[in-house]
Nucleic acid binder design. Structure first.
Length: 253
DNA sequence: GAATCGCCAGCATACGTACA
DNA sequence: TGTACGTATGCTGGCGATTC
């Protein structure tokens, strides 16, 4: 088993190569350790600041609806260990139809603009959004082939549906106002729920999928798209901000 | 190349507002 | 007071771009 000169040379060369690389790796390790330390420090700082802010807001803003029982269904995967009251309040618990939850601490931007309706709902956002779009140029392939088969209502021409929705809408409206608590978590308030999730994870950027899962929705494409649309709207109204591609974060985070 | 994301378009529904 | 209209919201789906 005598090693040939070429083999010896190869070993020596490799050894030299690795030895040359060693200090670089060590230096890189030190650099990364420093980075990690810095990130950890920053993380602690942010967490401390958040804790202080939340404590501050708890003292400044009297706890809303303290007596209101929280019957919000626990979020799948994420049954919060902390008291749910804040989250539930932030989630809007849309409840009593037109009754604006007193979470006026986070009024929609339109309210500040004075464009809100009586109910406090933003008015101009959609109009401005539509105005920002060049035009509703139809996408030839898209709209033609889509035509979803009407979720709840039987397939009806749009016009008749519209007028029908007026009359039926009032009935639904009254029904909703009489029994809003049941329908609220399901049908309404997705936006508020999404905000609540973002707020709860204010220190981390979340993906639409994560938010959907946090809301107890399965991670089907449809659900994720729905959440994403909601997140996009929140970003558009500055109630959330985009932390990166596919990443959303609470503006407070 | 598959998975994921961003953007867009459109429908259904709920609700508020204006008006006859 | 009832209705028409406007708007917000939730949802679905397609397509191109980007990432893994």
């Amino acid at each position: 088993m005598t090693s040939t000169p070429t083999a010896t040379h190869s070993i020596e060369a490799t050894t030299a190569l690795l030895q040359a690389e060693l200090p670089q790796l060590e230096e890189q390790q030190i650099t990364l350790q420093k980075e990690l330390a810095a990130v950890s420090e920053r993380l602690e700082t942010v967490r401390a600041a958040l804790a202080a802010l939340s404590a501050l807001s708890a003292t400044v803003v009297p706890a809303p609806r303290a007596a209101e029982p929280v019957v919000e269904p626990p979020l799948a995967e994420e049954v919060p260990a902390e008291p749910v009251t804040d989250v539930a309040a932030a989630a809007g618990e849309p409840v009593t139809g037109s009754a604006v939850p007193d979470d006026t601490a986070e009024l929609p931007p339109a309210v500040e603009d004075g464009t809100a309706t009586k109910s406090g709902r933003p008015r101009a956002s959609r109009k401005s959004a539509a105005a920002s779009k060049p035009s509703k140029a139809k996408r030839p392939t898209a709209s033609a082939s889509r035509r979803r088969p009407a979720k709840n209502a039987p397939t009806t021409p749009a016009k008749s549906v519209k007028s029908k929705a007026k009359t039926a809408g009032t009935a639904r409206r009254s029904a909703a106002s009489t029994a809003p608590a049941e329908a609220a978590p399901e049908s309404g308030g997705l936006t508020e729920q999404v905000i609540a999730v973002l707020t709860r994870h204010a220190d981390t950027a979340l993906r639409a999928r994560d938010v959907a899962q946090a809301l107890g929705r399965d991670d089907s494409a449809g659900n994720i798209n729905t959440v994403r649309s909601t997140l996009d709207r929140l970003v558009a109204t500055s109630r959330a901000h985009r932390a990166g591609r596919g990443l959303y974060q609470s503006p407070t985070g």
